[in-house]
Design a protein around this nucleic acid. Structure first.
Length: 290
DNA sequence: AAGCGGAGCAACCGCATACGA
DNA sequence: GTCGTATGCGGTTGCTCCGCT
């Protein structure tokens, strides 16, 4: 498991890699695989004393038989003191969806707007959770069908949930709300987050100022289909993809088309799979309890 | 209780870019 | 301008855990 790789054995891997350095090759044996507690302590203590950066020499000076890249990754993704661990919150899910719409698989860029979250974590979230749903829907995660599903169903429902949590938390709705779950310092308040997605063009995401992040739901997404955003995610829009959303496996029923006034009702139909909630993809638990 | 399969996640790999000599 | 090295990023792999049969 925690194999020690002799440099000679490693040469085939690294010979054509631009990242191969003489420094790394000079290390007689490189450890790979999971980090031990002892290694973690060495890395933490060294960085505490000397700071980070110059990872190759850091690895050597700290007495770690690891590549600089490995040390850097371990530090950034796991050992860094401000790394947040645990479940991705609803706000974070919404943020990830929004930012992924804008930037695609720019995980590092997305992570910059989720304090404490690493690009690796967001990438894993996307692959294990979001792509799973696409797979269940038998459509590609990059397909219009799936993107529409996220735009018109998933994200509005996320927002509703955030707002519901905000209300029920009784945190004064002001700067509190769901932020009780994530401290304001970490995530910013719902007021900061949700309005950016729902009702304004605020560029404030959490505690950071996000430059040029569009109000995707109001300004972009809903207008794509001619959606009037004067009403809660509803307005006069015709969602024409419903026919394409007929699941081959019969997970949910076809809906003729979204109708303006009944949008919430239609959403519920979709989410509930037309009434049979026993084993359908639109059970909210599947979408939101991730 | 044992085997199996899927989910989640840490870590690795290869490529691109930045930077300095 | 070129070359070598360092760093960053996105894709992928493989291990561990857990639930199901």
């Amino acid at each position: 498991m925690e194999d020690v790789v002799k440099a000679s054995c490693n040469s085939s891997n690294s010979s054509n890699s631009s990242t191969t350095t003489s420094e790394e090759e000079m290390i007689s044996d490189l450890r790979r695989g999971p980090w031990t507690v002892e290694e973690d302590f060495k890395l933490i203590n060294y960085i505490a004393s000397n700071g980070e950066g110059r990872w190759n020499s850091l690895a050597r000076s700290a007495g770690l038989k690891r590549t600089g890249k490995s040390c850097r990754l371990r530090w950034l993704n796991y050992l860094r003191p401000d790394v947040r661990r645990g479940n991705i919150t609803l706000e974070e899910q919404l943020m990830i969806l929004e930012l992924h719409f804008r930037w695609g698989n720019r995980w590092s860029k997305i992570a910059q707007h989720l304090p404490g979250r690493t690009d690796n974590e967001i990438k894993n979230y996307w692959r294990t959770r979001v792509q799973k749903h696409a797979k269940q829907l038998k459509c590609d995660v990059n397909s219009k069908q799936f993107k529409d599903t996220m735009k018109y169903l998933w994200m509005p429902r996320l927002i509703e949930r955030i707002q519901a949590a905000n209300t029920s938390s009784g945190a004064g709705a002001g700067a509190g709300g769901v932020a009780a779950v994530n401290t304001a310092a970490e995530m910013g308040s719902v007021q900061n987050m949700v309005p950016a997605a729902v009702s304004s063009n605020s560029e404030s995401f959490g505690t950071q100022q996000v430059v040029d992040v569009p109000d995707l739901i109001n300004d972009n997404y809903y207008r794509i289909s001619g959606i009037n955003n004067n009403q809660d995610y509803g307005g006069n829009f015709q969602c024409g993809y419903s026919e394409n959303m007929i699941s081959p496996s019969g997970y949910f029923n076809p809906v003729p088309e979204f109708q303006p006034v009944e949008q919430n009702y239609q959403q519920q139909i979709w989410l509930d799979g037309g009434g049979d909630t026993s084993d359908n993809l639109w059970n909210e638990d599947i979408w939101f309890n991730m």
